[in-house]
Amino acid sequence: MLLSRHYKRLYAICRRVAGNDADAADGCQEALLAIVRGLTRFDGRSSFKTWSYRVATNACLDEMRRKNRRPLAILDDPKRTLDHGSETSGNYRQTDSQIVDRLAIEDALPLIPEEFRAPVVLRDVIGMDYAEIAETLELAPGTVRSRIARGRRHLANHLQSARNGNQLASEQRRRERND
């Protein structure tokens, strides 16, 4: 029951850390196993939620390190275009630029250093405040603040590169059509 109650959030952490469903599923399974293995060491000094999120974050990062996966570039992946279409007709109702941002971020997140990725995920996916993140990742609150900012800056730079790449690709296609 305890696992069921926290599963979706654990999965959400893994999904963001891993960047795709397949790796998220593997990472989440590793996280659940890490949690049940570590349960006997859980001493109740922190909440189960904090403890399990820490275990899950580390398990997913370990899984990603083990696989050493790199995400595919979104522009080269035709399936992503289909996903894009289904999401615009779904509940999200995002604007095109928001969807492009989200897809670019999804690809960029696994590329930024882990030390920045974990606090950003815990903040923006789980909604933890800085103090909770500090406790979960065993960092000083000031470090959390700085790492989240730096993580977001990394993502902003990736996003900018993706936009520039988009523009270049569009211009290239336009030139090819004209030729």
Binding site: A12, A104, V121
Partner: peptide
């Protein structure tokens, strides 16, 4: 904008 994109539910 980054925050919005990251926090969009997966």
């Amino acid at each position: 904008r980054i925050q919005n994109a990251v926090s969009t539910p997966t």
